[in-house]
Simulated assay, not measured.
Amino acid sequence: MAGEQVRALVFDVFGTVVDWRSSVLREVEAAAARHGVTGDWGAFVDAWRYEGYLGGIAKVNRGEWPFMTTDEIHRRKLEELLPAYGLGHLPEAERADLNRAWHRLDPWPDSVPGLWRLKQRFVISTLSNGNVALLVAMAKRAGLPWDCVLGADVLGAFKPKPEAYRRGAELLGFAPGEVMLVAAHKQDLQAAMAAGLQAAFVPRPREAGPNVQPDLEPDPAFAVTARDFLELAAKLGA
């Protein structure tokens, strides 16, 4: 059976556990509608994610920016995007609330039941570049039954730095080989394997929306590939 040596499952969150794009797009569209502003809000959200969040993490990892939380990285990019899309007049309270859209992401339909099944056999935890406050708020709203919440501000590094993965295993009290990362992103899984963790690939075809095509091809190097968390639980004997 796959994962016989695994004692803990750690999860990438954005895109793997929750549908970030549809959730954030809904809130951006609602904010724009309240102010009577039209625009390509899908492009807004994609820029917020790819240029802002992923680009910001890369700058921190290269030493170009000091370490900061995901909330702070999101807010930096939001301040660029609002005037570019005609929303530069948003008051501070609305800006802060819109930035917290990333705290209110909807889970994929299989996420909560799948996590409950996996929790019966394994320790389950986030291993996310999100900060703890963000991840806890998301879990409370979405009903995600984590045993532990680990974010970059606790890990001391952003993925894909190897210390993020190793520190996650250490904090849970396990050797890296006893921990399996569950993710929809192959680069994340490959970095986890290079740090000594095992890998489970759960592709999410609808994660990125129409403008980005995720890599959904299975990789035989991964210990497990599953359609969703329920199939993952079955394959891991949970």
Rank of each mutant, 00 (worst) to 15 (best):
M180F: 04
I73T: 14
E72Y: 11
L171S: 08
G143A: 01
L98N: 11
M1I: 10
A195F: 02
M193P: 12
A31G: 12
L171K: 05
A175S: 10
A164Y: 12
R21D: 02
R141I: 05
F158M: 10
G151Q: 06
G143Q: 00
G42N: 04
K59N: 06
D12E: 13
G151W: 03
P109D: 00
V10Q: 12
G86I: 01
L118G: 11
A33M: 05
T126Y: 06
E94Q: 07
A200L: 03
T38Q: 15
A33E: 11
N61F: 05
E163Y: 07
K186M: 09
G151S: 06
T126V: 14
S22M: 07
L118H: 09
A184I: 08
T225P: 01
H35T: 10
V6K: 12
D219L: 03
V6E: 09
D215T: 03
P205M: 03
A184D: 04
A192Q: 10
V179D: 09
D106I: 12
L135C: 09
W102T: 11
S125L: 05
P203R: 00
P205H: 11
P214F: 00
R26A: 14
R62S: 06
A31K: 12
G3S: 12
A223I: 02
D228M: 00
E94P: 00
I57D: 08
W48R: 07
L81V: 07
A96Y: 03
S111I: 02
Q120D: 15
Q198L: 14
E51T: 13
K59T: 04
H89F: 03
K59E: 14
S111Q: 09
A33S: 13
G237C: 01
A184F: 01
V37Y: 06
T126A: 08
F229G: 02
P162R: 01
S111H: 05
P203G: 01
P109E: 00
L150E: 11
E231Y: 00
V136F: 12
G209D: 01
V224M: 06
L82F: 04
R7G: 15
H89Q: 12
G143H: 01
A164H: 13
E163A: 11
A175H: 04
E94W: 02
F174S: 07
M180T: 04
L87E: 04
E27K: 11
F158S: 10
E170Y: 06
R100C: 12
L134W: 05
K59M: 07
L118V: 04
H74P: 10
R34V: 06
K186H: 11
R76D: 09
G168K: 10
A142R: 00
M1N: 14
Q120N: 13
